[in-house]
């Protein structure tokens, strides 16, 4: 009904946080140079934003396909009656929140794996440079 709205809302929040972090980072860059090789949090947040935004957009298309989203106010057919509204909110609270949680969990796993790969490759480079 409108489950994609939960992920879309999370995408907006994450995107705003990321923008704020990038601005702060740009200011900090002038004051100090960081030599540690690791993936910045802003890059990781960009991955999450892309998954949430892309997924929500494609799911919104599915809802248009099924006639659940309209081009006129209130844009959702489920908003027409109180019973449909209650069902919509229930779906958002269960399926919508479930989608947002799983995407965030998968993103968390990807971030851990990415950090491990970077750590492994930089330690391998260190060993090679020590040998030579």
């Amino acid at each position: 009904m409108a489950c994609f709205l939960v992920s879309a809302a999370e995408a907006v929040v994450v995107s705003a946080v990321n923008r704020r972090m990038e601005l702060t980072k740009a200011q900090e860059k002038h004051t100090e140079e960081v030599e540690v090789v690791k993936i910045p949090v802003s890059v990781k947040l960009k991955w999450l934003t892309r998954m949430l935004t892309g997924g929500s957009f494609l799911l919104a298309f599915e809802h248009v396909w099924h006639g659940e989203v309209t081009a006129w106010f209130p844009f959702l057919t489920a908003m027409s009656s109180a019973a449909d509204r209650a069902e919509m909110f229930k779906e958002m609270a269960t399926v919508g929140v479930g989608m947002a949680i799983l995407i965030t969990a998968v993103w968390g796993a990807v971030c851990v794996a990415a950090d491990a790969i970077i750590k492994r490759s930089s330690s391998e480079t260190k060993i090679e440079s020590e040998r030579s």
Binding site: C3, F4, S7, W47, R50, M51, L52, T53, G54, G55, S56, F57, L58, L59, M99, L102, I103, V106
Partner: peptide
């Protein structure tokens, strides 16, 4: 990211 996001949601 777009396809994986949609796949996870579905």
């Amino acid at each position: 990211f777009m396809y994986w996001g949609a796949a996870i949601m579905w």
